[in-house]
């Protein structure tokens, strides 16, 4: 145990995801030895992030204004919505530059063990976005694990009666990878989702 505030700092750092007691200690001592200006800047950003950043009132993505960058952009296609679990999924899809529609961030996936049900996710907001009839297609891009699949299935059942096109991201082989190293489940899905090559 360290004295007073040093131990407080280690405890606080240790509560962060992916930071164990040893890493927390290392970070704490790094901060102690760092230039005061650097630490000031970090402290400033930490308080800023809580006061300035909020969630987009349309899609639930992190934003600095009422609407996020994607929802503000008039060039984005309003007829397609891509549903993801977290804001970081938006960043990942944006990096591809393939998708020109808008997003909807659920804030997680259905997981009864963690007490997360449909009402805890931003599903009602999604339904109200769809009510104006502008949206033609909803792409379900939840994670390809049990909870993500359950969430996608739940949403698909909810959305299909509304006469929308509901699609799910494909599962398959990683590009540039070797077939022999793919695990059996992925390879099995890739077989099930194979496409024909006739022009």
């Amino acid at each position: 145990m360290y004295e007073g505030v040093v131990q407080d700092l280690i405890d606080e750092l240790g509560r962060l995801p992916g930071v164990g007691p040893k890493s927390a200690q290392r970070i704490a001592f790094h901060l102690l030895q760092a230039d005061p200006a650097d630490v000031q800047r970090l402290a400033h950003v930490l308080t800023e992030v809580k006061t300035r950043v909020r969630f987009c009132e349309v899609c639930g993505n992190v934003a600095e204004e009422a609407r996020c960058r994607v929802c503000r952009d008039p060039r984005r296609d309003v007829s397609v919505i891509c549903v993801v679990e977290e804001s970081k999924d938006v960043v990942a899809i944006e990096r591809t530059r393939e998708f020109r529609g808008r997003y909807h961030v659920l804030g997680g996936a259905i997981s009864p063990m963690e007490g997360v049900g449909p009402d805890d996710l931003r599903m009602r907001e999604l339904l109200s976005r769809l009510s104006d009839g502008e949206v033609q297609e909803v792409i379900l891009a939840t994670d390809p694990n049990l909870e993500g699949e359950a969430t996608a299935t739940y949403l698909a059942r909810l959305l299909r009666p509304m006469g929308l096109r509901v699609t799910r991201l494909a599962s398959g082989l990683p590009v540039g990878g070797d077939l022999e190293y793919a695990d059996e489940v992925t390879l099995g899905r890739a077989f099930a989702g194979r496409r024909s090559l006739d022009a």
Binding site: I110, P112, G117, P118, D119, L146, E149, A150, T153, Y154, R157
Partner: peptide, 12 residues
Amino acid sequence: ADVRTLDVWDEQ
């Protein structure tokens, strides 16, 4: 009652 999600887990 909230048993709508149960259908999904039945399928899984």
